[in-house]
Design a protein around this nucleic acid. Structure first.
Length: 216
DNA sequence: CGTTGGATTGGCT
DNA sequence: GCCAATCCAACGC
């Protein structure tokens, strides 16, 4: 039995790599949100997607703008954007400073602070508390105000080591809700969990270079 | 400056 | 399964 390091904070170096590698390795990690009154909420990440600068589906594809500025900054910061007139989505910035890439946090398993999540979500079904990018931000109290915060050293939100998920427990498939670059299997999910935004992975499309079951 | 549609969700058919 | 809600960034003129 070794020393338990699961609550150690992930350092800047963890985030300083390509979006696909980061997205995959974020599975099983613990996202911790600390409110101003000290209340702690935490959740185990089970669904994450990668977005690269050379990727037509990425906000960074058309260059650096006011909205995507954080995405082009150094790794380990939070990129939050507003969509469909009512939802916020949050990303962990990856790669190098000056490069626009990030990992979209799409779903998680509630751990600590469930009653606080329930209050913010206005519903009690634990399965639906954090199972979607908009639900995740609503439950954890993340809005435009948290755009650009530092996850590696800040107090508002951080990531802990948790328990990395082995390849046998991970599946990859097309990203949800994107209409371009649909053959890029950059959505990573933990297979053995009820907390995903979608229950099943779509089958490989005809003409796709992928074959058989999607793998990490 | 006007138009378009989106890395979504929840409610209704 | 279908679709409205509701804002605003990006793009075209």
């Amino acid at each position: 039995m070794g020393h338990d390091r699961s609550s150690e904070r992930l350092p800047r170096s963890f985030f300083a790599r390509p979006a696909i590698a980061l997205a995959r390795d974020l599975l099983g990690r613990v996202l911790v949100r600390t409110l101003e009154d000290g209340t702690r909420m935490s959740a185990r990440l089970v669904e994450v997607e990668a977005y690269r600068q050379d990727d037509p589906a990425s906000h960074s594809y058309r260059g650096r703008t006011a909205r995507t500025d954080v995405m082009f900054g150094p790794p380990g910061y939070l990129y939050v954007y507003f969509t469909y007139g009512m939802h916020f989505c949050m990303n962990v910035v990856s790669g190098r400073d000056g490069e626009g890439s990030a990992a979209l946090l799409r779903a998680a398993e509630p751990l600590e602070g469930v009653s606080e999540m329930v209050r913010r979500r206005g519903m009690t079904n634990e399965r639906l508390l954090l199972s979607g990018p908009g639900r995740l931000t609503q439950a954890l109290g993340v809005t435009r105000e948290q755009n650009g915060i530092d996850l590696a050293h800040g107090d508002v939100m951080h990531l802990e080591r948790g328990r990395p998920v082995p390849d046998a427990g991970v599946a990859a498939g097309p990203r949800v809700g994107v209409t371009v670059a649909v053959d890029n299997p950059w959505r990573f999910v933990v297979t053995d969990t009820p907390y995903l935004s979608r229950r099943t992975l779509p089958p490989p499309r005809r003409g796709s270079r992928l074959r058989g079951s999607p793998r990490a």
